[in-house]
């Protein structure tokens, strides 16, 4: 299994310590669910993961479902992470599934597409377009879906789950390393169980500790801090 740098200081080392392999880093071509209560840094994890990839020329397909493109850019600027040059180099493809809800007329570009959160079929079509675009840049790329919270609010839970399965299958076939987020407690217990079983890896964040179960099985945990440089993970332990 290939490894990639998550871009989160301290995280890759702990992730590797819970795996059976000697390689350091985030497991490539896998899917990872990041789950936790609101405001614990799930989105920041996504920004950092995507931005670090872009900074080492790994393209990214980014689906933003909670915040529009402008807000996403603004949030990342707060950490001094600027997206424009990646978009100019066509390394970043963003699908914004929330902005069109306002009814405002928004122009799309080569690397920025719109969809509607209450239309999973269209979202999947746009994911297809985005995947083909990013795949042309590199056969290994990152994909971020932040977050499932809004799709769950607008669509029946089983439909979102089916959407997610299709999304993961297609993206993994294309070679992507996927992370997707969901706020804890917004779906039924059963759906939450399904979400955790769909993903290869699960990362739980609670504001103090980041705990994860890797594809290989063991569980690791560590304290983390949100700084003006993003998330920093302390030395952790295997449970």
């Amino acid at each position: 299994m290939s490894r990639l740098e998550s871009g989160i200081p301290g995280f890759d080392e702990i992730f590797s310590s819970v795996s059976d392999f000697d390689l350091t880093g985030f497991p490539g071509n896998t899917s990872t669910l990041i789950i936790g209560p609101p405001k614990v840094g799930k989105s920041i994890f996504c920004y950092q993961f995507a931005y670090h990839g872009l900074s080492i020329d790994e393209p990214c397909l980014y689906i933003t479902a909670d915040e529009g493109m402008k807000q996403l850019q603004q949030n990342m600027i707060d950490f001094n992470w600027f997206l424009q040059s990646a978009m100019d180099k066509e390394m970043l493809y963003v699908i914004d599934s929330i902005s069109s809800l306002s009814g405002a007329s928004i122009e799309t570009t080569n690397t920025y597409n719109l969809s509607k959160i209450n239309d999973p079929t269209d979202l999947m079509v746009k994911v297809g377009l985005g995947t083909r675009f990013v795949f042309k840049k590199s056969e290994e790329f990152r994909s971020v879906f932040d977050s499932l919270t809004t799709p769950f609010a607008f669509n029946p839970e089983p439909m979102v789950v089916r959407f997610l399965k299709t999304y993961i299958r297609r993206l993994k076939e294309a070679g992507a390393t996927i992370i997707f987020t969901c706020t804890e407690g917004i779906v039924s217990e059963n759906t939450e169980k399904i979400l955790k079983s769909i993903a290869n890896n699960v990362i739980m964040m609670d504001g103090d500790y980041i705990t994860f179960r890797s594809i290989e099985g063991p569980i690791g945990t560590a304290k983390y801090h949100i700084t003006d440089k993003g998330i920093i993970v302390d030395k952790g332990e295997v449970l």
Binding site: K116, D119, T121, V125, G128
Partner: peptide
């Protein structure tokens, strides 16, 4: 939304693909 697919190159292929997607997701309305 779907009407805009007619502006794509080869619109029929896109619409057919979208139908497959909607089936796999179980989006009957779509």
């Amino acid at each position: 939304i779907y009407g805009s697919y007619q502006k794509f190159d080869n619109p029929l292929a896109h619409i057919k693909e979208a139908i497959e997607m909607s089936r796999s997701i179980g989006d009957d309305k779509g």
